[in-house]
Design a protein around this nucleic acid. Structure first.
Length: 156
DNA sequence: GCCAACGTTGGC
DNA sequence: GCCAACGTTGGC
């Protein structure tokens, strides 16, 4: 079976790796970017690896591992008028926004910081995360990048 | 279909 | 809190 790898960003004040550890499994709702939507809708497979990334915080970086769980589901927040993510143009018969569940795997002993990743830019090769101005909240990760980030998490 | 205005992301 | 980068919106 094909296993792919992803990086998913979350602001720790909104939803941290500790929060994921606590709930074990979280519906990844609220993504309103078509490229990120397409990854969740059509490209992810159950069991795919996820680098869990903390953004918009004192030390941005990869803080642990998660996995994609289950098939794509319509993001319920798009149909909830009380939600910040409500989309009046989305048709329930043809939902515009899709989500996956994300399951906790483990938390790193220490953050693999964005700074550290930048220092490893040569080894990591082309990595959307390191491109300037990158704002995508879900990015594909190669197997080599996945392995390298894991090795950075091991040593200290 | 162009593109200026606007809103959001996210590092610093 | 600032602001560069970028995606989206909407007028034309």
């Amino acid at each position: 079976m094909r296993v792919a790898y992803w990086l998913m960003k979350s602001e720790p004040e909104e939803f941290s790796i500790d929060a994921l550890k606590k709930v074990k499994r979280e519906p990844w709702t609220g993504v309103r970017n078509y490229q990120a939507r397409n990854f969740m809708w059509q490209q992810m497979q159950p069991g795919d690896g996820v680098l869990f990334y903390h953004s918009n915080c004192p030390v941005p970086g990869v803080v642990g591992l998660a996995e994609v769980m289950g098939e794509p589901l319509p993001d319920p927040t798009q149909f909830d008028p009380l939600s910040d993510y409500f989309d009046s143009k989305s048709d329930p018969d043809k939902p515009r926004w899709w989500m996956r569940h994300v399951g906790f795997k483990r938390k790193f002993k220490q953050v693999v910081s964005l700074d550290r990743l930048r220092g490893e830019a040569g080894a990591l090769g082309e990595f959307a995360l390191l491109n300037r101005g990158n704002r995508l909240s879900i990015l594909p990760v190669s197997e080599a990048q996945w392995t390298h980030v894991l090795s950075l998490a091991e040593d200290s």
